[in-house]
């Protein structure tokens, strides 16, 4: 009995791996991806990186410009994330099972969040380019929409997980809807919500670079500009700055998270 249980478990693992390999092989054949050529190009890419893609003393002149753009990008990410967080709290409260006003309303809230979340940030940028053109607002709204969708979903789950017990108690005590929201739902879920906002902020700083390339703003634009004008030294400086920023932000947000949880 015991032996057959473990055998069964092992067999199902083996089956899973075989299926995974089959899918990989199928994909390689279908797309005509050549492993050998792929691997062969790695040394060449590395050689190019080492000989061309490094900052020089001359490119350091561009540093003030780059930092300026970097700051713009960071601010854009922070602004879009925090505003999205504020909007998401409202929709999440209305959409949660714990505080739902009506089932239909709850379904609509979740639907809206789902649509915003499942359209990728680059797709949003392209769509919004039509309305705002190459402008900071395009990037702002693209990041805002995606964060809004994601945070609404995360907050809804947090509320249902953390707050439902205390909400029941306050309902039983005769408290009204807004009283329950402000005295119970928000206080009990706030550390987790902040944690999600910090996570979103990190993600957005990464995405903002990409969005900047598309919308011609911020640090993404700097990179695009230097890269296309063959100024690889300056472009590499941009990359180093982005990596350093992301590491710094991650460090800061981990510290904050440890303090609040």
């Amino acid at each position: 009995m015991q032996a057959s249980y473990f055998l069964k478990k092992r067999l199902s693992t083996a089956l899973f791996i075989i299926i995974l390999l089959a899918i990989t092989a199928g994909a390689v054949i279908l797309t005509g991806f050549d492993f050998m050529a792929g691997f062969a190009s790695i040394p060449k890419a590395a050689e190019w990186g080492i000989t061309q893609f490094y900052p020089t003393a001359e490119s350091l002149d561009k540093l003030p410009d780059i930092l300026d753009k970097l700051l713009e990008t960071i601010m854009l990410s922070i602004a879009s994330t925090t505003i999205a967080g504020g909007a998401a709290v409202i929709l999440a409260v209305l959409g949660s099972k714990t505080m739902q006003v009506h089932v239909i309303f709850s379904v609509i809230c979740r639907g809206i969040a789902s649509v915003f979340r499942n359209i990728d940030v680059s797709a949003w940028s392209l769509i919004l380019l039509f309305s705002f053109g190459q402008h900071v607002l395009t990037g702002f709204f693209a990041l805002f929409f995606v964060s809004f969708g994601f945070l609404t979903r995360a907050f809804t789950e947090t509320i249902d997980e953390v707050s439902s017990h205390a909400v029941e108690a306050l309902k039983a005590a005769g408290a009204g809807y807004f009283t329950i929201v402000f005295r119970s739902v928000i206080p009990s879920a706030i550390p987790r919500k902040l944690s999600w906002v910090l996570f979103m902020m990190e993600t957005n700083i990464r995405s903002a670079t990409l969005v900047g390339i598309l919308t011609g703003t911020g640090i993404g634009f700097s990179f695009d500009l230097y890269y296309k004008s063959f100024n690889y030294h300056a472009a590499s400086l941009v990359v180093i700055c982005i990596v350093a920023t992301i590491l710094a932000i991650e460090f800061v947000s981990n510290t904050i998270r440890r303090m609040i949880l």
Partner: peptide
């Protein structure tokens, strides 16, 4: 128990008064 675990004991006890409050004093 259904308390707001992150809040203090006295905060939780006072929650029992929220049924007597209006929207503003309650919120």
């Amino acid at each position: 128990y259904n308390l707001v675990e992150r809040l203090s004991v006295i905060d939780n006890v006072l929650h029992g008064r929220l049924g007597y409050k209006n929207v503003i004093t309650g919120s």
